[in-house]
Simulated scan of single mutants.
Amino acid sequence: MSANSDLALDKGNREPKFNWFKIDVRAYTMIAALFSIWVLFSLLHERFLSATNLSNLFLQMSATAIMAIGMVLVIVAGHIDLSVGSLVGLTGGIAAMLNVWYDWPTVPVILATVAIGAAIGFVQGWIIAYRAVPAFIVTLGGMLMFRGILFGTSGSVTIAPLSPSLKTVGQAYIADLIGWIIGIVALAFAAYLAIRKRNARARYGFPVEPLAVSFLRITVMGILILGFVYLMNSYKGIPVPFIMVVVLAFVFTFIAKNTTFGRQVYAIGGNPEAARLSGINIKRRVLTVFVLSNTLAAIAALVLTARLNAATMSSGQNAELDAIAACVIGGTSLMGGSGTIIGAVIGALVMASLDNGMSLMNMESFWQYIVKGAILILAVYVDIYSRQRKKQA
């Protein structure tokens, strides 16, 4: 037997080894950055990590996180949506008009608002996908139009107050017992997913981390989840908007990673020509992405309007920039083809933490714009640098 065949046999019999040093650098960098921000502001202000302030922080980030979830799909598909901020203002204004001026009950208001968001997404997506008008132009026009429609239909006045039942969408809290049940269920589900992923890797012969490492990972996850529930229950409970963020994040993570539609969206953003040659209906997928994005913008509008107990003319202004920044900071590439829902949610939490911390410090508002802009540039730089390194490797 030749030396080459001996070497091949040796490789075939070799057990796959877990690489202890192979980690998701970008994911851990984002978590470390968030942790560093929290530590810094807790040292500068003793109230930052209090249950009251953290509860307000999760409330504040909810609308941005919901918009960012939809924006991830748009950016991954190789497009951009500049209209979601004005769409939040318009749909939030419509919800308030129906509720305050026409006395619509809460459920019909919610259904009508979400339906209007989906319809607008269909129109914008159809123009982009089937008439080949650049998304930048279509959504830029939408940004101007939606804000103008809001001014015209509302008479440029603040619409308030909302009915108590509609306010619960943005202001309610989960009872303590239900919070503990949700926490335990979330921990059990996370452990199930971790074990399932580990068994799947072992079944197909991929390197598997030691069982002790998996157990440690689940333990840390349990401490974080149950610690979060305990902290929130020490104030008023888990905010309902944050529960909505978590549910939407899980649903859209599943769509992105475990469905044909999700994989095709990533393929379209990664290599449109290869996606077309493989038989993917690119136009239909792009249309669906914009419908989902604008539907989520309408849900974010409900959360924001309910939290403020009013629809204002400035509602949602520059929110599209916060959503895009959350996605990019969370690791979504503006080149398309890569990005995660969880990363976008973490990015939204980073943005909200900066705003919240600097507000507690009574810093001038211009510093918030400077710091967030600098972080956004740094995130894009890291993305481009990492792509160049991969090409060189």
Rank of each mutant, 00 (worst) to 15 (best):
A298Y: 00
L378Y: 12
Q171Y: 00
P161Y: 00
S386C: 09
R47T: 14
H45Q: 11
L360D: 12
Q124Y: 05
R196N: 10
D81L: 06
D176C: 10
D81H: 01
A300H: 01
I110P: 07
G357I: 01
I223K: 11
I375S: 11
L98H: 06
G152R: 10
F254Q: 09
L150Y: 07
L302S: 09
A186D: 03
A297K: 02
A188P: 04
M313E: 10
F41K: 08
P210Q: 14
G179I: 03
Q60I: 07
D6S: 08
P239S: 14
P241N: 13
L111Y: 02
E273K: 14
S338L: 11
E273S: 13
L44K: 02
I218M: 15
S214I: 13
I375M: 13
G357Y: 03
V157D: 11
N309K: 10
S314G: 15
N56H: 10
M244E: 05
L90S: 12
A8S: 07
I174E: 07
T106W: 05
Y230V: 14
M61P: 00
I31R: 03
Q60C: 06
L43I: 13
H79T: 04
L321N: 01
A190I: 00
L43E: 05
A135E: 01
V185L: 15
S353N: 03
A175P: 02
G205F: 04
A323I: 05
F41T: 00
F48L: 03
L378M: 15
V240I: 15
L231M: 15
I149P: 04
K197D: 13
A119S: 06
C327T: 02
G183A: 15
G347A: 00
A200H: 13
N281V: 09
A310S: 15
A68F: 00
V251C: 14
I341Y: 08
T253W: 11
S5V: 07
R47D: 14
A202W: 03
L224D: 10
Y385P: 07
I370P: 04
V245H: 01
L187R: 00
S359M: 10
R198W: 06
Y130W: 12
G89F: 06
G343N: 03
A115N: 00
V157A: 14
S338H: 02
S36C: 13
V208N: 11
I149A: 14
I370E: 02
L248F: 15
A32S: 14
G336E: 05
P239M: 14
T91V: 12
A33Q: 06
A348P: 01
G92H: 09
V133P: 03
P164Y: 06
S278A: 11
A27V: 07
R147M: 05
V371Y: 02
Y130S: 12
V229A: 13
L231D: 12
A311M: 00
I225K: 00
Y173R: 09
Q392L: 14
G117T: 08
T288P: 06
A115Y: 08
K257A: 14
A325L: 06
Q60G: 12
A267Q: 04
I346R: 03
V289L: 11
V286E: 04
G331N: 01
N53K: 10
P105N: 13
T139G: 07
K390T: 10
A115F: 08
V109D: 03
P241L: 08
V133F: 02
F18R: 00
Y266H: 13
I377N: 12
A274N: 01
R14T: 10
T52V: 08
E46V: 10
I37Q: 01
P239G: 13
I243S: 12
F228N: 12
G142P: 06
F151G: 09
